[in-house]
Design a protein around this nucleic acid. Structure first.
Lengths: 122, 122
DNA sequence: GCTTGATCTAGAGTCGACTCTAACTCCTAG
DNA sequence: CTAGGAGTTAGAGTCGACTCTAGATCAAGC
């Protein structure tokens, strides 16, 4: 079973523009198949991979780094160490973001506390 | 005691360019004082406020919204409800980001687990 | 007085990540 | 057989947030 670009857009929440853009940027693990006539045919696997990309993006991984990771995957077995390194580096980055966000949350909670009159103003 | 733009840059981690840019964008609660000769003189209060701005920014608040909040603060007492609304809206946004980041972290941990051989590949 | 380094302004440039346009093709329903 | 909607490409445009440049001024040490 294959999906059109419009169906994939609906499923992933990405626009068709963005899907084509991501493809041009080399973010897809396997080249997207084409129907006679040149239209893209996506598989469920493609959608799954896009899901991973979306997660990596939304956690702040730049497109070039996602491409790098994609290329490692595309090359097949033999570079697991590099993939692991890349993921671990990103994990650190995510943990830093979580810490920073929590610090921000504290600032906000504090101010909300003040404005709700639960805390003395400073 | 006052600080030069360079000293504030050092303390906040923002560049002097960014400090001037933020001022132009209306992100400072009080207008920055000037020395004879036109140089900026920052107070500790200014640095404190910049710290808040940095936190709001790093948690994804767009500059125009920070300006909006700044303007409410600048107007003085009487608009606490609006400030509170704005902060609460942002708090929701931060909580969503935390949830999303945690979801990303799970994906990453899962993949790391696979590459470390602790999990069966899928 | 002279040099050096920080600061000033106005405005231009950059960068990442989309987002859209134009001009065309293709498929389906009526 | 034709009208409309979805798809195609190459390339241009936008947007947010900086980041830098040019050319001038200022303050401190020699």
């Amino acid at each position: 079973m294959t999906l059109s670009i419009g169906q994939v857009a609906e499923r992933t929440g990405l626009s068709v523009h963005t899907l084509r853009f991501y493809e041009r940027e080399g973010l897809l693990a396997n080249p997207v198949r084409r129907a006679a006539g040149g239209r893209r045919l996506y598989t469920e696997d493609d959608v799954g991979w896009l899901g991973v990309c979306i997660r990596l993006r939304s956690s702040g991984m730049p497109l070039p780094v996602i491409r790098e990771y994609t290329e490692l995957v595309r090359q097949g077995p033999g570079n697991e160490k590099e993939r692991l390194d890349l993921l671990k580096r990103h994990r650190e980055h995510v943990l830093e973001q979580l810490a920073e966000l929590n610090a921000c949350l504290e600032v906000i909670e504090h101010k909300v506390g003040i404005y709700e009159g639960r805390l003395p103003d400073c």
